[in-house]
Nucleic acid binder design. Sequence first.
DNA 1: ATAAATAGATACTAACCCGTATTTTTTAAC
DNA 2: GTTAAAAAATACGGGTTAGTATCTATTTAT
Lengths: 188, 188
Amino acid sequence: MGILQKAFELIYVKGYQTTSIDDILATTQVTKGAFYYHFRNKDEMGIAIINELLKPGFAAAFIEPLHTEGDPVKIIYDMMYAILMKNELLKVEYGCPAANFTQEMAPWHSDFTRVLNELSQEWKNAIIHCIRKGKKAGRIRADVKSEQVAVFIMSGYWGIRNMGKLNNSRSVYLIYLKQLKDYLHTLQ
Amino acid sequence: MGILQKAFELIYVKGYQTTSIDDILATTQVTKGAFYYHFRNKDEMGIAIINELLKPGFAAAFIEPLHTEGDPVKIIYDMMYAILMKNELLKVEYGCPAANFTQEMAPWHSDFTRVLNELSQEWKNAIIHCIRKGKKAGRIRADVKSEQVAVFIMSGYWGIRNMGKLNNSRSVYLIYLKQLKDYLHTLQ
DNA sequence: ATAAATAGATACTAACCCGTATTTTTTAAC
DNA sequence: GTTAAAAAATACGGGTTAGTATCTATTTAT
């Protein structure tokens, strides 16, 4: 886990392909023998980072908030606000770790893409579930298509991460969040 | 331009970092001497690809459609539909070339980020302009914030490109487009 | 025709890459 | 205390990388 943590930090900042195993060894003070005792190769370590580090963090920040009771509009907005503005691990200049992996590995590394797709599907299902609950409670219009809304919200998130990288400033997050709030209110 | 074209095709599919100069030389049948006569180094070629190839193609598909007269809702939706569903150069499994570059290069290669930011700003300004015209013509509500909407639309685009990569299917584009249409109608 | 500038070809370097083979140290079991 | 397994250290191999040095060929200008 120590190796994975440090490796993740390097990869999050530099990218997977450009982070060499020697880089990881240098910063972790781990020798090559130890590294290859724990991981068969670099890709196995990459997959381990996603499963052991990314998934738990993702579940805490992206999934769990959606399971709380209340107004979906508020729940979804608050989740997004927390992810973009409060989360101290995710820096605006380095974007979303999951999106970085996706962009870099798809479509060539199918192992990565499959695991990342699982992440994405979990989020999607949680959003759909949250909206369906809101519809039953009369908080969301009955004609709202849950899946469409989920996909729309997710795409907005990944896109604003990209714009944040370009602008290297959270100010674009705030602009996005304002419009997200307006959009969510149209679902009521 | 021949080198740039072939190099772009390789980079679009494989990524910038993982496309070696030797790869480019092999597919272009150009020798190393010729290559380094025209470009000082790899990054200069990368910047040239963005300026000489990406920018013109971007202007044609992303900017020009926004300059036509008419209903912004229809104009913006049609533009997005054409980009996602009709453009034969942009494949769903390889995503958006500009987004790929951004994801891969930011924040370390400031030359790339700066040029890509110019692209992004041009698109943003064109969308803002389109919406402002719509407001003046009474086609868009007066209280709509043009910049917020522009950022929201752009983030949706870049995000859905990411999801398309993950799913490797245009079906997710269609789901997104439906909700985009609904969203745009709320601006009227 | 000659000189100069442009363009292209070839061979090479020095650094870096991932992964392996081999050896050494540490830990645990009996 | 001996043995065996687990864990870690080291050195190296085979291949790739971006970029350079050097040489040759082709235009262009005078």
